[in-house]
Design a protein around this nucleic acid. Structure first.
Length: 259
DNA sequence: ATGTCGTGGACGCCACGA
């Protein structure tokens, strides 16, 4: 079974590339973030035509998550109990049961700056997500939490730690919030590196992609019981190349798991 | 280290978010 997550930074702009990528990579489950579109405007037919079911949690302009599956789509839930807002709840998390897994697509708040109101919002949001995941664990299939976490788990996950001193994404508080999540019994599945370090995001500016100046902030967190089924994990850097790319590349995890 | 993208509103640019 092939599982993937991709922050597409507008599903409308990225639709040709999304369709191409689905055809070429043939994932069984794909989690999307930053779809930036209301549910009734999502290009559902184009994705369904490829044999997928689609579950959506979007809003008009920003944020937006989705789950695309050809191995079932059960018990869809949008948002989570206790989800903080800024100030209103945003479309940043959803879950569905696909292929015997409780799959989450999450778009963690950016945080913006350590002294921004958005930073405590990010930390509170992560803590609330942890509480919701913990509450669900006894009754749900094995957890698979996929998405753009906007956190580089360690200094190895940024191109130059010195360049990030005083920035979000690398602070001890954010990293601790991520450790608290994985302490629920989840493993951060590291993609293998090829052609550079295993980054998933490169800023559009300043030619950062071509200079290899990226970050690993998109993650797949797998239940301990699922981790032994991992056969491969990689980043599709090709999806970051060429015309009109997202600033994120897809993270793909192949599992020896019954579909 | 902020040079590029994406969004929608009132435009043919701007403010905002990443």
């Amino acid at each position: 079974m092939r599982l993937a997550t991709w922050n597409v930074n507008s599903v409308v702009v990225r639709l040709p590339r999304l369709v191409d990528w689905l055809e070429k990579s043939s994932p069984d489950i794909l989690c999307l973030q930053e779809t930036k579109i209301a549910d009734d405007a999502f290009p559902r037919a184009e994705v369904e035509a490829l044999g997928y079911e689609v579950a959506l949690h979007g809003e008009g302009r920003w944020n937006g998550v989705a789950i695309i599956s050809r191995v079932g789509m059960g018990d869809v839930a949008r948002g989570f109990d206790g989800q903080p807002g800024f100030p209103e709840a945003e479309a940043r998390a959803m879950t569905a049961t696909c292929g015997g897994l409780r799959v989450w697509s999450v778009y963690v708040p950016n945080g913006r700056a350590l002294d921004s109101d958005h930073f405590p919002y990010k930390l509170n949001w992560l803590a609330a997500l942890r509480t919701a995941l913990l509450a669900s664990q006894s009754t749900s299939p094995p957890l698979v939490v996929c998405g753009d976490f906007n956190i580089a788990p360690t200094d190895d996950d940024v191109w130059d730690p010195a360049a990030f001193i005083g920035s979000t994404h690398v602070s001890p508080q954010e990293r601790q919030a991520l450790v608290a999540l994985t302490s629920l019994g989840l493993d951060d599945i590291h993609p293998r590196a090829f052609k550079g370090r295993p980054f998933t995001y490169w800023d559009y500016r300043a030619g950062n992609f071509h200079k290899g100046l990226g970050m690993r902030i998109d993650l797949v967190l797998l239940d301990h019981g699922v981790t032994p089924a991992v056969k491969d994990a990689y980043i599709d850097r090709d999806a970051r190349k060429g015309t009109l790319p997202s600033d994120h590349a897809p993270l793909v995890v192949d599992l020896d798991w019954p579909r």
